[in-house]
Amino acid sequence: MTAHSDVASPLRDTFRASMRPVAASVSVVASGDAAGAWHGMAVTSAVSLSMEPPSMMVAVNRSASVHPVIQGAGWFSLNLMAECHADLLEAFSRSDLRDRRFLPEHWSAGLQGLPVLKDALSTHLCRVTAAHDFGTHTVFFGQVEDVILPEPAARTLAPLVWFNGARAALSATAET
């Protein structure tokens, strides 16, 4: 059996190409360190896991700066981004823009002091109940301890979606 680091480059490239047409919503996974500083990154690898108990899971690269913060805090927030958060997506995708990530006009503190994106389509505040390393990532399993929904007017915002290596618009198709 081949270790993940020994996978041939052509297979990695083909696998990456095979995943590009998979549309995925974009979230910010975030947490706070012992000094109270917030850390986060944009992810498309966050999904609901179970209704009983309400739980989410997110895959975080172990080289990401937020990884040890989530491990240490034992908590994370998942903030589902809307199209209006496109500027924030760039800040959370590039380490050289870290100073633009948690501007007060976009964020407030929630349960356990976790970062809550204002006007997010939803925010799930999760307590880490398990973690599993696989390849280059850790999958964090979080029991949802609180859910924050936007005001009704914001609930009609379109989600920020990643498709084919770029942001994409999403529109609903009427049922016939």
Rank of each mutant, 00 (worst) to 15 (best):
E52R: 05
M19L: 15
V7M: 10
A64S: 11
T2I: 14
H132F: 10
V28L: 07
G165T: 07
S63Q: 14
R16H: 12
A153G: 10
A130S: 12
A59S: 15
F15I: 06
S65L: 10
L49T: 10
T129R: 00
L170D: 02
P68S: 08
L111F: 11
F15K: 07
M56H: 03
L49M: 11
S55P: 05
L97Q: 13
S31T: 14
A131P: 02
E105N: 08
E52P: 00
V139G: 00
G40Q: 05
L80F: 08
L114R: 06
S55R: 04
L97V: 02
M81Q: 08
L149P: 05
P150C: 05
D146K: 05
V29L: 06
D99W: 00
T176K: 14
F163C: 13
S18I: 01
C126Q: 03
E145V: 02
T2W: 00
T176H: 11
E90C: 06
S95T: 15
M51Q: 12
H106G: 14
D87I: 01
M57P: 01
E52A: 08
S65Q: 12
W75R: 08
A35D: 15
A86Q: 13
A30H: 02
R167D: 07
A59I: 08
V7N: 06
R101V: 00
L157H: 14
F102G: 01
L89T: 02
D87C: 01
M56F: 11
H137P: 03
A73I: 09
F92P: 05
L103E: 15
L11H: 10
R94E: 14
V26K: 01
D6Q: 15
H67Q: 11
V26T: 04
R94K: 14
P53Q: 03
I148C: 10
F15Q: 02
E105D: 15
L149V: 11
S95V: 12
P21A: 11
E83M: 06
T156I: 10
V29C: 03
A168I: 03
G110N: 09
N164F: 03
S5G: 14
H4V: 08
S95M: 07
R16F: 09
